[in-house]
């Protein structure tokens, strides 16, 4: 089955991983800007990173027929440095018309601090000013519930935002309901130990339905599995769910969400007759 991974950090992966993803049925991916594992020292470092995301990774993916898209921001962890964050935010507009840039992300909170919230709000201003879609990181582990509530407070306070153009990622059992009820898209990240397993993602679809829900691998430089979305496809099949429902979650939903961005120039693969009729 063809699928789209809506959140995967390919800068951290090898070229072999691109080939493996292509073999597994991946046809496109989107890569939000994130933390590199260390704090960068200057805005110039982010400028180079944005060039890597918008140019180099797009070419590297293209070698295997994969369509690569990206989101730009300064991540929540480095947002603790407010002056650096403002320099980076000021630089982002020069990249927004670049092919493959879908919007602002992954912005969010990490330890739920005042500085993080301040920069989150400034990213929202940027997105509104340039009419961009938004992809949001929610914190991990014990900080997730509070951080998600704080993020929803800030999003819902801003009446200028079109909620159908905002994806709140890394939802789990205790945060998915409020994100969906407020009208946002929700992403489930299949990530060992600290996030969600394929089986629990299937549970959440059974409990909340498949509307405005995405699944992703978030494959990065930490312990993670870039082929986690195919694991989810297998888990859905083993539970007896129809192919049409699986395709909705892993292909139709991300395509529908991304299609709201002007830079989503996705060329769909040819589907065989059986798959096209799902």
């Amino acid at each position: 089955m063809y699928y789209i991974d809506p959140h995967i950090h390919m800068v951290s992966r090898t070229t072999d991983d691109y080939e493996t993803l292509a073999r597994m049925g991946c046809v496109a991916m989107s890569e939000p800007a994130f933390w590199a594992g260390f704090d960068r020292g200057s805005a110039e470092s982010f400028h180079d990173y944005f060039r890597q995301l918008t140019d180099f990774e797009r070419q590297r993916a293209g070698q295997f027929g994969l369509q690569h898209y990206t989101w730009l921001c300064i991540n929540a962890k480095e947002a603790e440095n407010v002056s650096l964050s403002r320099e980076v935010i000021a630089m982002i507009p020069e990249f927004l018309d670049t092919p493959g840039v879908l919007g602002i992300g992954e912005i969010g909170l990490n330890k739920n601090t005042k500085n993080e919230a301040t920069i989150f709000l400034e990213h929202l201003e940027l997105a509104v000013k340039y009419d961009q879609q938004i992809l949001i990181h929610t914190p991990h582990l014990e900080d997730k519930y509070t951080g998600t509530r704080m993020i929803l407070d800030m999003l819902c306070d801003d009446t200028r935002l079109d909620r159908s153009r905002v994806l709140v990622d890394h939802v789990e059992e205790h945060t998915i309901r409020s994100v969906l009820e407020e009208g946002f898209w929700a992403g489930m990240t299949l990530y060992p130990v600290s996030k969600c397993t394929p089986e629990r993602a299937v549970d959440m679809i059974e409990m909340h339905g498949a509307e405005r829900l995405l699944v992703n691998s978030a494959g990065d430089w930490g312990p993670s599995k870039p082929t986690a979305v195919p694991d989810f496809i297998i888990a859905m099949r083993r539970r007896g769910h129809p192919e049409s429902l699986i395709r909705k979650v892993v292909y139709d939903n991300p395509r529908e969400f991304f299609s709201q961005s002007e830079n989503f120039d996705f060329a769909p693969p040819e589907l065989d007759e059986a798959e096209a009729n799902l």
Binding site: N112, K114, K144, Y145, T146, D153, H174, R200
Partner: peptide, 24 residues
């Protein structure tokens, strides 16, 4: 699963925006 997630979560403070001086 949701109950265990909440047990392992820090509590949410509804006054956080006021405390951070970030009221809308």
């Amino acid at each position: 699963a949701e109950q265990i997630q909440m047990i392992c979560s820090l509590s949410y403070d509804e006054q956080w925006q006021e405390k951070f001086d970030l009221l809308p």
